[in-house]
Amino acid sequence: MSELLDVRVASVRQLTPLVREFTFEAVSGELPGFSAGSHVQVHMPGTGRPLCNAYSLLSDPLQRQYYRIAVRLQEQSRGGSRFMHEQVKEGDVLRLSPPANLFAPHSRAGHHLMIAGGIGITPFMAYIAALEQRGGSMELHYAYRSGLTDTYLEELAARLGAALHPYDGRAGQRLNIRQVLSDQPLGTHVYICGPDSLISDVCQTADALGWPAERIHWEAFAAPEPGEPFVAELADGRTLAVPGDYSLLEALEQAGVPVPNLCRGGVCGQCMTPYSAGEVDHRDLYLSDSERADHLMPCVSRGKGGCTVKLAL
């Protein structure tokens, strides 16, 4: 795994009652470059537990002075978004994993159709900057709740003009997915970032309209859902009790067993771990049914009913 980056919090802005923006600069040297759609993992110290959430970089990928992220306060927070909202102050030093990209705009798309729900706008801020620079054709459909999750709306309206299609859920405005997807020129790729329900609605509608999977790209970063406690047994015989509000990955990290990972959300495939016994509640979007027989994704998946999962680690 790449070395962690030390960054200083250069500024903090409250954008809406629910969304806080953070700008990071390098403590020393230069920040590594990144491409549109990249994310970083922010390590959160002092929460009494290992905690590390992935956030999309929303700043212009061409400028190298700072990284910028926006964090929505989650009601069901395991502590990550609350920590960012309540603890992090200007001047603080945080550690980040270097940027990784699992959601890049397709290089051969003739038209980029972006669909954002709420805080899912963040990767598209970097997309828009990159597409403006290369003169890419684009349109953005942005569903939000005014005064709560309408992050960057004014800036987007100024930058995109008619290519911005806003939908204020509080005013009863609805995004008609079918209408949008049924009239797109042939070279179009669609990108979705937002809640799972939005992603699955768009994917299902696209599929029914004859969009091939190659044209559909999505990213859902959600912290792992809590579950029942269970036990993990390591290859050397050690056993770890995994509490209900810890992911297996976090429990392994706390026990000093690092597992390579990029997304911590069950999509990238990096933390795939073989296991030989135990009933597993697979919650990832990566493994095939046959792979699930002997592999699991510790970032999101858990043992069922307090069972012991034997890991080949």
Binding site: L181, S182, D183, Q184, P185, L186, T188, L209, G210, W211
Partner: peptide, 10 residues
Amino acid sequence: RLSQARVGTR
């Protein structure tokens, strides 16, 4: 034909 086509054409 394809220059006029929309996604969803097979």
